[in-house]
């Protein structure tokens, strides 16, 4: 969990140009970290690549609002892959 969070954090810092301390589990990707709609799409594409996930469906991406939602999604996928 902590490991996933740290990797997600790194990715967000790189792609959204924000400071590491801003990236908390509660932070809203759009509202707090300033991402626009296409930044979110870009982020999701990078998550797929970084964590070796299957393509993330639109209905799942719509549910991703906070950084914590990303971490939860990835953990769940990893469970299912096992």
């Amino acid at each position: 969990m902590a490991d996933t969070f740290n990797r997600v954090k790194e990715l967000i810092v790189e792609h959204l140009d924000v400071k590491p301390e801003e990236v908390t589990l509660e932070a809203g990707i759009k509202d707090d970290l300033g991402a626009d709609s296409l930044d979110v799409v870009d982020l999701i594409l990078n998550l797929e690549q970084e964590f070796d996930l299957d393509q993330i469906e639109e209905e799942d991406s719509e549910k991703i609002v906070t950084v914590g939602d990303i971490v939860t999604y990835i953990e769940k996928q990893k469970q299912e892959q096992k």
Partner: peptide, 10 residues
């Protein structure tokens, strides 16, 4: 638009 965007990048 969004699906085309993802397809294109991939």
């Amino acid at each position: 638009g969004r699906e085309v965007f993802k397809f294109a990048v991939r």
